[in-house]
Each structure stands twice: as structure tokens, then as C-alpha cells.
Write a protein that binds this DNA or RNA. Sequence first.
DNA 1: AAGTTTTTTTGATATACGTCAAAGATTACA
DNA 2: TGTAATCTTTGACGTATATCAAAAAAACTT
Lengths: 239, 239
Amino acid sequence: MKAETFKVACSSCNLRELCMPVGFDQKDMDKLDEVVTTRKKIKQGDMLFENGETFTSLYAIRTGFFKTSIASEDGREQVTGFQMAGEIIGLDGIVNDHHTCNAVALEDAEVCVMPFEHIEDLSREFPILQKHVHKIMSREIVRENGMMMLLGNMSAEERLANFLVNLIQRLYARGQSQSEFILRMSREEIGSYLGLKLETVSRTFSKYSEEGIIEVKQRHIKILKPDALKQLVKSPNCN
Amino acid sequence: MKAETFKVACSSCNLRELCMPVGFDQKDMDKLDEVVTTRKKIKQGDMLFENGETFTSLYAIRTGFFKTSIASEDGREQVTGFQMAGEIIGLDGIVNDHHTCNAVALEDAEVCVMPFEHIEDLSREFPILQKHVHKIMSREIVRENGMMMLLGNMSAEERLANFLVNLIQRLYARGQSQSEFILRMSREEIGSYLGLKLETVSRTFSKYSEEGIIEVKQRHIKILKPDALKQLVKSPNCN
DNA sequence: AAGTTTTTTTGATATACGTCAAAGATTACA
DNA sequence: TGTAATCTTTGACGTATATCAAAAAAACTT
């Protein structure tokens, strides 16, 4: 067995309720474990998959943090999402059997490899899993709708507030602090995601900081006035 | 039977290859017809479904033209897509059993109502349909990734060129002219979709017109230099 | 067909954000 | 431990697009 892969079970995974549907009995759960064939470790800066690569599997993030991005012909990068533990990446590859974006680990990470053929086979057997897969894809569509609102209609301040509120909510759901966290991405990557330049991101951080809304020490962020931040978010929240 | 609904069959529909998977024999095809329970007519300006409404069905557009949009708390509208014959709308509703966007007919339209329960039941029975549903959802995710690139990275000219090239490609796939068409939406709706104000859309049309790339007579557009337009599209195409 | 409303175009002006540049701060590396 | 490389901040200035406004054109209404 290679160093970076080894076998595991969802039934004993503490992230189960994030990746997997609820409502299974033990017998079904054993069957469900077949969805994940292996785990895979990805070093910071390495790619999990890239544009053009043949699509075989979805990946459930066990630990670590990813960004997904696409590039235009002339090389401009657009970050399309940041993903953390319990989230699923690779959905872009289903339609054409090839991935259309790059997934890069922003910190050392481990993912559960779920061959899509397995998922489809088991979905036909277990309606709960089928429904779950549909919901995951629909959730991503709704998230991206929210991003269109953000990119099409919102000011730099609203965009960054939205981004921060979304991050703390997701981190909080994973048992982390609501008020303090470390950004795993650079100002440039935040800017790319939000349709802003890195200087604008930096300036907006500084502005919030001057207003006492947050405290910024490089990538360490402390939320001082969560309500002020939430008030800046006047749009459908994009989880 | 109500005036606006009546029963029909996919097996005899000329849009079948757009909405439905290929590779079915006659026996299966009869079964597949069960996906669509009824058709429904929607008058121009009327809503097919709206934000907050309980989700029950996906809709395949038979005739007509739709826009989908979301609204922020303070009332700003973001158009999230324009849909034409053969395309499926309603995917946003799956994740929370409620729709999160509004779907409005931009011209008199007719849709095939496909209760999602039926789709799920039949998908378990027919892997080809299952795969098809997954591809439709993944295609929408990839399209929205492309929109993020457009909204986050592209100039007004690039956005409008992208929009026009995408439209003609889709219309051409439906047997219409590659060089001439009628816009079914206002400058404001185009602007909302592209993250621009209506004045900017109008000015950009005028600019293309002056450069001899297109001919604009209100909503009637003629493409004079398709290559010039395509050259303006330097980004992953968002179909 | 006249009048009202809506849509589109065009011009003048404003502004939010981008660009360019340089200095600090932090991290990586040898 | 020092040196290079990268990331972040801040300032000065530029520009693409927004805003405001008004006229022209088209689409409805009665």
C-alpha cells in the first residue's frame, strides 16, 4: 500500500454527519462504507485534480483546506470556491468526464476518494444516498447563484463582509470559534474569489479594522463586532 | 382537464434529444414518459415558480424563454440565467425543498412538469436517466463557474461578447440562424445578468455597432463579424 | 390615432476600484 | 543567522463604469 493511500470507513468517521446522509441503520452503513475506496494525502500547494484531467471521483475533505479555480485563455485566474472539512469537491467533472477547474490544497490535507461509479451504483440502491447527492449538487448551484449576486451587485465592503460571515459560519459548524480564525488564503486569492484586486481587499480589511469591526494581524482575524459585519451583508447568504 | 395543463409523451417530442438522455429502447421510452406528468402554459411576464415556494418539480422548457433571478434583502435583482427550449429549470429547489429564485417567462411559454419524486424513482431504475440528471446538474455548476469568471474578471465588452456568442450558439443548436436573432430580454435584464448597468449595455451595443461587428435595431441583433465577436471572448465559455 | 408609459440611446459628470510604486512585515531557504 | 523571496500595507493617481439627466424611439392603452 502506498504511503499516501489507505483504507477507511465512513461509519466510524467523526465528519460523517457533514459528508454523509443521516438515517442509516448499521447494515446499510456497512454498505455505505464502500463509497470511499481510499484516502489520499495532499501536501500544501499540491493539486488534487486539475483542468482537463479525466474525472473519476468525488472527494470528501477530511482535513485541510482547498481552493478551486478556473483560468481564462489569457491566463487570468478566477477562484470559484474555498472548501473545508466535510465538503465535497469534484462536481464540475461529471458533465464532460473531465475536470474543468483546478483544486489546490491551501494547507496539508487529506481527502476520501469516492469513485463516482460507486456513488451512482449505491444511489440506485439507497434512496437516502441518492437524495443526498442531489442535494449536494443543488446546494452548490444555490451557492453559485449567491456568488453571482455578490459579484454582480455588491460593493467591495459588502463582498468582504459576506465572505467573512460565511467563513465564520462554516468554521463554527465545525466546532471552531465564532470570533477568531486564521485565513488559509492570501489577499490575492480572496480578491480573485470576490472579483477584487488584492490591494482593495487589504484596504477593506484596514477600513474594518479602523472602524473596530475586526482585528487584523496578517492572516489572523478576530471579529470584534459580529453584528456590524452581519449588517453589511444585505444579500442572500451564499453558504 | 384545465386549460393550461394536458398530458403528453417525451417519446414523441421533437426536443427529446435536448432534455432527455439518448440510448433508450422503445420499452424503456414508454416508462420514461412517466417523468412528465403534465404540460403547463405560462403567459409572458408570469412566474413559473418563485422564491420561497415549495419545490416539487423540475421543468423542461418546450417553448418560450425564461429568466431566473434572485433578490437581495434590499431589493437588488440579480438575473442568474436565461433559459430556452430544451433546458431544465428548478434545480435550485432541490437542496431545501423550496425554490430560492424566481423564474419568469419572457415570452409566452410551455413547460413539461416533471415531479422530482418521479425523476428520482425512475433514476434508480434507469442508470441512463440517473447519469443524465447528474450531468444536467454538473453542467449548471460549470456554467456558473464560467459566470464567476465573467463577473469577476471581464470588462463590459468581454461580458457582452460572451453573452452574445453564448446565445447564438444555443439558438443555432435549436435550428435557428447563427447570425440573426431577437433578444427576448431588456437592456436592464442583460445588465443584471452581466453585472452592468443598462446604460453600459446600451453603450457597448453601440460601440460594436460602430465597429461594424453587429447591427442593432432595438432587440433585433444581426451578427456581421462573428469572428471579431469570438475574439473578444477570451475565457472559458459558459454554456 | 392620440396619448401615456416604457425602453433605449446618448451626453456630462462622479466615483469606486484598479494600477503603479515603494516600503514593511513575514516566511522560506541556504 | 542572514539573505532572498513572498506577502501585505499604504499612498498617489488613472480609468472603466456608475450615476444623473434628458431626448428619442417604441410599445402599449383607450
